[in-house]
Amino acid sequence: MRQFTAVVNPTAGDSTGAAALLRIARLLREAGAELETEYSRSLAHAQEIAVRAGKQGRIVLAVGGDGIAGGIGGALSGTGTTLGLVPAGRGNDFARALGLPADPADLARILLTGDPRHVDTIEVESAVHARTVVLGSVYAGVDALANRHANEARLLRGAASYYAGGLRAVATWRPASFRVTVDGQEHDCRGYTVVAANSRYYGSGRAIAPEARLDDGQLDVVMIHEAPRRLFFAIMNELKTGAHVHRPEVQVLRGREIRIEADRPVPYGADGEVEAALPVTARVRPGDLAVLC
């Protein structure tokens, strides 16, 4: 029977991480699995716990949102340790991309009997973060600003916090001139944002890269060029379905290594946690993480 170490972000989803784990823990233990629980003090502490548990041959459960999932998944990338997710955050976009069920009984069944699937991860390199590995996406421009506003929201949760953060960010955004290098080929983009996506989802279920696949060895690069603000708000609404990629203002490329630069200080983020300023380089690490799904 499987042995699990659950690493809980106690502040995820307004403190729902522990509650989400309780429902799963009972089902795992009733089935005969061994489960120990650790509460993290910080993302770095969560990563330390996960790596130590992996060295002991245990399956690591990341309990929380995309931040702790990406942080722990990045730390376990290339180690051979299997990762399981118990979604309990604002967005849960990587869990969504994996197709994980919301029902606790169905999720427990996957954790107990599911076969590990090897998925890609993203190595992120910049002047601030020497080398960090994340799971979902790296985004630069208005998206990073919107994510910051969403994380600061106190009264809103889930998609509402991201939508409100997006409205606030767009209202004050000045188009930037990006230089995006995809596998050595340069592309210019003056506009709102550039996203290097491993997962199709970000921002609590918005399909920024609808054709992205977790195990194809490539990143989908989505560039949203300059447009009137009213049109950008329409594009934001189309992110729900992925229809935005058919607009002429949206350009989609694909590659293994992406470098994003800008003509002025522009923020970037990754998996809701890494926050710094361009330039940044994102490289795919094919099949580097085993995940139960």
Rank of each mutant, 00 (worst) to 15 (best):
R174K: 14
R117V: 09
L135F: 07
L167A: 13
W173A: 04
Y162C: 01
S161E: 01
H118L: 11
R148L: 15
Y163H: 12
D120I: 10
H129T: 02
A150G: 00
R154L: 11
L107S: 05
D143Y: 12
A140I: 09
V119K: 05
V138L: 10
A153F: 08
R117D: 05
A108Y: 00
I110Y: 05
V134K: 01
Y162P: 01
D115M: 15
A130T: 12
L155R: 14
L107T: 04
G136K: 08
A153K: 09
E125Q: 11
G114E: 04
T113C: 12
V124N: 00
L107M: 02
Y139V: 15
Y163V: 14
A159H: 11
A159I: 12
A176P: 02
H129D: 02
R157K: 10
L111P: 02
L112D: 02
V128I: 12
A150E: 02
S161D: 02
N147I: 10
A146K: 02
R117S: 09
G141M: 04
D143N: 14
S161V: 07
A144I: 08
D106W: 08
D115E: 15
H149T: 09
V119C: 03
D103M: 09
A171Q: 14
V138Y: 03
L156F: 13
A176R: 06
S161C: 06
E125I: 14
D143G: 12
H149L: 14
T113Y: 13
A146T: 05
L112G: 03
F178Q: 00
S177F: 08
R117A: 11
P116T: 13
G166K: 01
V119S: 01
S177Y: 09
Y139A: 15
I122D: 04
T132M: 03
